[in-house]
């Protein structure tokens, strides 16, 4: 049974791989037939060669690293604030009464729309980028942390009480772990949104990072680098999201069924 499942999973992966290869092959072939000018839409191989001939690998790595550190800090700040505010508003009724309406009022504003305001407040430098990235993480995390807290099964809290736990100990030993599955979902969504904000922030104003890389390439008319960069951004997003997913499944998946 298990080996069967494994082999069918392997088959699926193989089919998926064939699909990806087929897509690239078609793209490559169409490009060579000249239906679409290669100046406008280069083939994958051309995009890669164009990038690697103009840009050393270390420079590409530098852009990836710059973007990753940026999104990491923004995510860390926004996510931690989201956890603190969300948990507090779910645990203490009065915090919820005060903060929920504020959050619900500001949540419909897409984080992107904060970019001009961030620039007014913090200038064109790094802080305004970190700010909008952190907003991307904050809203999903604060919402899921709050939801997780208010949906903790009250019987678990009562069980802890019958074992003599009170106050903070119930919060940290019972309510927080019980709300982790909800929180993890918010964290994953938050990472995705942070990443989206990162690209936007780097498009607007930056001198390094993957968003800058493609925006700069546009100014120079290097379409190969633009396409390479877009795929690179997608890959980095996919890989980091996958890594977070694996960590969540390892830690929470062993006791919780998603």
């Amino acid at each position: 049974m298990n080996t069967q499942e494994n082999s069918s999973k392997l088959n699926d992966t193989a089919l998926g791989l064939i699909g990806v290869i087929a897509l690239f092959a078609i793209w490559e072939i169409v490009s060579y037939t000249g239906i679409i000018s290669q100046e406008i839409f280069p083939s994958p191989s051309q995009a890669v060669t164009a990038t690697l001939t103009t840009m050393p690998l270390s420079e590409i790595g530098g852009h990836v690293w710059a973007s990753l550190t940026r999104v990491f800090w923004g995510f860390l700040i926004g996510g931690s604030l989201g956890i603190i505010v969300g948990v507090a508003s779910g645990w203490y009724a009065w915090v919820g009464v005060l903060t929920r309406p504020l959050i619900e009022l500001t949540r419909p504003i897409p984080p992107l729309a904060w970019i001009p305001m961030a620039i007014i407040w913090l200038g064109l430098g790094e802080p305004s980028k970190i700010f909008v990235i952190s907003l991307g993480a904050f809203f999903p995390v604060v919402t899921s942390a709050y939801k997780g807290m208010i949906s903790v099964d009250p019987v678990l809290l009562r069980a802890a009480q019958t074992m003599g736990l009170k106050g903070w100990r119930i919060l940290f030993q019972v309510a927080l772990p019980a709300s982790l599955p909800d929180l993890a979902t918010g964290i994953r969504i938050g990472w995705g949104l942070s990443f989206g904000m990162l690209v936007a922030a780097e498009l607007v104003a930056a001198n390094e990072g993957m968003g800058f890389m493609i925006m700069h390439a546009r100014e120079l008319g290097q379409v190969g680098i633009i396409i390479f960069g877009i795929v690179l951004i997608g890959v980095v997003n996919l890989v980091t999201d996958y890594a977070i997913g694996v960590v969540i499944r390892r830690q929470i998946g062993k006791w919780h069924t998603y």
Binding site: L203, R218, G221, G234
Partner: peptide, 16 residues
């Protein structure tokens, strides 16, 4: 993959 490519990252390309 298509979903994980941020739509905004296409901006330079479509402007080009």
């Amino acid at each position: 993959f298509g979903r994980s490519v941020a739509a905004l990252s296409l901006l330079p390309l479509v402007i080009f």
